[in-house]
Structures are given as C-alpha cells and as structure tokens.
Write a protein that binds this DNA or RNA. Structure first.
Lengths: 139, 139
DNA sequence: TATTGTTATACTCTATAACTATA
DNA sequence: TATAGTTATAGAGTATAACAATA
C-alpha cells in the first residue's frame, strides 16, 4: 500500500531496508570470523549479564525451547557456556557464559558493528535527528 | 568499544537494535502467514521487476548459487516462479515470477511492514529527521 | 496435572566440492 | 579452459510431537 506513504516516507523505507541489510551482514560476518553463528553470538550476549533458564533463553530468542538445547549444546562443547542446576527448581537448567565465552562475546561485539562505526563518526546533529526520528517511530 | 560513543549515540544504537529486531520479526511473520520463508519472499521481491539468472539471484541473496537451486525449486513446485531459457546463452536459466507469485509477493509485502505502518502515522517532521539522520549515516 | 528440558523427526538454508552442459 | 547450473553432502536453525524428571 504505497499509496498511503509520502515520497519522503518511501525514501525512509528504502533507507531502513538498507540499514537492516547492512546490520545483518555485519553481525553475521563478525560471528563467522569467530566460527560462530548469529544465534550463538546472540545467546552469548543474552547470558552476558546473568545466567538464564533454557526456557527464558527460548523466549528471548523467540524460538522453541527444543532449539535452544542444540544451540547451547554446541556452545557448551566449545567451552563458551555451561549448564548449571537451579537451586530453587530441580527441573530447571541455567545456561551461564564462561570466562572464555564472555571474552569471545566481547570481541565479536567490538568487531561487529557497522552501526557502531558509523555512529562514531556521525556529527552530533545528525545523531540527534536520528534519535528523535527513531524514538518517535518505535514508541 | 563503547568509550568512543557518546551517550546519545549509545541510545541510537539501542534504538537501531530494536528497529532491526522488529523489522525481522515482522518480515518473517508475514512470510510465514503465507507458508513462505524469508528467503523465498526475498526471491519473489527480487524477481518482481524482471527475470534474473540463477547466478544473479545468488549475488543478490549473498549466498552460494547451489542454494538458489533449492529455493527456486520450492517456489517452482508451488507455481510461484518458473525457470526460462536465456536465448542469448544456453547455459543460463532465468528465474521469473509467475502471476500467482507476483500476487503473493504483493500480499506479503503489504501485510509485512511494521516499518511501513509505523511510517504512515509518523508526523512529517519526525519523518524528515529520520531521513536526514539515516541518509547521513548510510552515505 | 502442569512445567522443564530433552529427544526424535522433518524441513529449510547454508557452504563446499564435484559434476554436466555449454561457451 | 572457463562459466552456469546442478547434485551430493554435511552442519545449523527451525517447528512439532512425545518423553522423563520434577513441581
């Protein structure tokens, strides 16, 4: 329904398509440089603040819990994550990032961002415009 | 390296993370509503203007040509795409969207966009700010 | 009974390597 | 010999359904 979008809005739509594409590329490429997939890096990020139950991890990843088993298996096999019992509920397994996992997660994030590098050199007034526009759009 | 990013830039980074996540969700969900994957819809979009050689499709999708064979196979099995010979080079197969494929592609795109619906209601001044900021960031 | 995590299964996307038919 | 598309293979992510352990 392009009819309801102004010419300016259509251009913004194109810019957003480009932004998303570059963001994705940069994210996957950074992960691949460390022989990791995007999902694996995502888990490392989600666990960087505190351990999470497999169930919670599935919610955050927006996928089925059965998938998380495999992703965490592969991270655990490489020593980047470990499973811990939950003292409060013996059904639950908490996934926790290891020191090695935290290190790699930080490295990937630092080497990732197309977005990040672009933002460092963006003049403050453009940054402010971006902030205002995005904030209004997302809220 | 958050040290080199201003507090404002950090907030923009968060906003962009959110934007990308919502964009992705909305794209995949719209595709799924039509029993299609994101890649399949992407192909439908790429072919919406003109037929493309399998090789070109692979370039646009940023994946190996061998993968395109499978994606086009599945679309062809559902009658959404067909393979045509290239009169100029008998090695080449041109993938072309069918009428049914064009119809579904349009429907998905219309039902997709989180981005699109947000932009329709965004005040012109916010839209202009977004455009300015994104343009400067991406170019 | 309900919930947590896992297993089993099937499908899609992905890359790599080897093959065929053209050029 | 080089290129276009395919096949074969293997790994990863995804959803669904069924299961054991625990609540």
């Amino acid at each position: 329904m392009n009819l309801s979008l102004s010419p300016l809005a259509l251009e913004v739509l194109d810019l957003i398509d480009t932004l998303v594409a570059r963001y994705q590329e940069s994210y996957e490429a950074a992960a691949a440089r460390h022989q990791l997939t995007g999902s694996q890096v995502r888990v490392l990020e989600l666990l960087s603040h505190q351990p999470l139950a497999m169930r919670r991890l599935a919610e955050r990843l927006k996928c089925e819990p059965s998938n998380v088993t495999g992703i965490v298996d592969r991270l655990e096999a490489r020593g980047l994550v470990r499973r811990q019992p939950d003292p409060a509920d013996r059904r639950v397994k908490l996934a926790a990032v290891t020191e090695a996992g935290r290190l790699i997660g930080d490295q990937v994030r630092a080497s990732t961002d197309f977005t990040r590098t672009r933002l460092t050199t963006l003049p403050p007034e453009d940054c402010a415009a971006l902030h205002a526009g995005l904030y209004r759009m997302l809220n």
